[in-house]
Design a protein around this nucleic acid. Sequence first.
DNA 1: CTGAAAGCGCTTACAG
DNA 2: CTGAAAGCGCTTACAG
Lengths: 346, 346
Amino acid sequence: MTRLERQHHVRRASIKDIARLANVSHSTVSRALRGSSLISPQTITRIRQIAADSGYRPSAAARSLVTSRSATIGVVVTSIADPFAAEVVLGIEDAADQRDYSVILANSNAQPEREMRVVRAFEERRVDGIIVTSSRVGAVYAELLSQAHVPIVLLNNQHPSEFMHSVMIENLAASRQATQHLIDLGHRRIAYIGDRFGCQSDTERFSGYQSALEAAGLPILTEYTGYGNGSADGGDSAMSELLTLPLPPTAVFCYNDMTAFGAMRAAAARGLRIPTDLSIVGFDDLFFAQFAAPPLTTVRQPMRDMGRLAVESLLHLLAGTPTEANLKMPGELIVRQSTASPQEIA
Amino acid sequence: MTRLERQHHVRRASIKDIARLANVSHSTVSRALRGSSLISPQTITRIRQIAADSGYRPSAAARSLVTSRSATIGVVVTSIADPFAAEVVLGIEDAADQRDYSVILANSNAQPEREMRVVRAFEERRVDGIIVTSSRVGAVYAELLSQAHVPIVLLNNQHPSEFMHSVMIENLAASRQATQHLIDLGHRRIAYIGDRFGCQSDTERFSGYQSALEAAGLPILTEYTGYGNGSADGGDSAMSELLTLPLPPTAVFCYNDMTAFGAMRAAAARGLRIPTDLSIVGFDDLFFAQFAAPPLTTVRQPMRDMGRLAVESLLHLLAGTPTEANLKMPGELIVRQSTASPQEIA
DNA sequence: CTGAAAGCGCTTACAG
DNA sequence: CTGAAAGCGCTTACAG
């Protein structure tokens, strides 16, 4: 028995095996295991003991076939190697586990073909709901996802639809605050490096930046708008371009930390010191932000909590309980050493 | 119909629905969909067309109930927010997707209670195999995992068992090379900051460090062995302690990049400049290593490829094809700016 | 309180 | 080439 049990691909005990051992019908076993009030407490205890002894594990497949619930949620990320996504997924897995849901994780790599495969896999596995962590969810992708006919929660994005909730950060307020921080330090030539794909978070962060400048009576110059792509390389080249301007900015607010890391690298490559020659602000507060050179001033997003909240939101959608469809979390400006007053007079 | 289809939780078309539409038995539909040679090509085409038109998606649950294969692999990580794990999982998901497997992701958080839950979930979902990405897989955990009666691949760890393969980096050679790099630069007082839990990778890396010192005729001093825990905080406190020594080391080889980041922070907190006053070498080459202050010299692990390889190894185990049980990948020393010749004479 | 029966959506021998 | 039947492992009305 022990020998057999160690082998791989043994047939697992089924409800029928337990029934035989317990001398009852398999219906009774099923009820006992589920704690039905129809079964006497002694029988329940006895049957559960037998089940435990024989290492019984209910088949999720069989159960979901009859209940038409898979107790599974599908999570798509553009790339799990993106630290932002990884933190969010941690929160999602955590909350899902607490509710006895399993997480099926898929990477889309921002490739339409992969996105299709992912949705198909989710459909075949009959996931109860889907969480999408990506700042770029185009109309086509959203349409595709909605074909799964299950509730969807978008993280860092939004889509007006009855079965699509969203969890986002207060982009506008947070960005305004970040930009204000630079203004307060005395900066007048403040650039923004965004995401050239123009996703919703980018649009909102850009608006926050603009509104802070406006409120301070500062001009909004198009040459101070750089276009990255959310990655370090994107930030690097956008920053490089900004630095070729006759009157380069003395401070930059970046769409996210990755972009900021790239901007730092570009500045360093040109011999600029941060924050003496250039102040840089990021967005996310990735774990690494504190280890950057110098430690990065940034807007902290409660990534894990956002993941947890996405699960809660999804469960509400599944239960049909009315809740806020578009949840907004506050961001928090974390001032570190990448920002300071400008040294030269503009 | 379109209205209905947009709703959530619609009953999906089954093989029977297609059968009705096609005027054949559901057996025929099943065969046609699977491309059985028993069915005429025209019928296959016709039935597939109908299936596609009605948005049919086979139920993975029903299929796995009869085939007793779930086409699913369970992946446990200690924390998906660990960048190393995230990169590995990316590779895993990628390879799994190519082979039409889905990935069920679970975090164990190094908590025994969570580990039990994870194994149970994997058992209930009848995953076909398991990949464990964690440098610390104790005997208890391994025993627990093996109760799932499915093949297991350990990443960054090893366990002698017929149904447990492993994928690791050439720790010994890589660590020897990293230490040799410091010796070549002229360092004589070289410390090692390991993982105090003494996992296999730590033991091997420590051995590589020792063997390089020995080969160079340098003494191995116990006071130069620091104990971290794989995180930045662990590296920070271990480094801090090393720096209180009367004759502190001029170079440190760290168990991993996270530990190295912490060590850098500790050194900076004491006003030491890197690499002028202290050289630091990490292990992993996390994405951020190049953005550290200064960019970190480290041993690159091909994390994504290791993840892919783990899937291949698992599939071999599933297919019963004989293969190397313990795969070793080479590491690559990446020299950046955190290492230089020692400035003072020891 | 307990059991026999039906059914969830598939696959696959077994007969035609 | 096609269909009727059995069965995978559960849940749950329906009868006792």
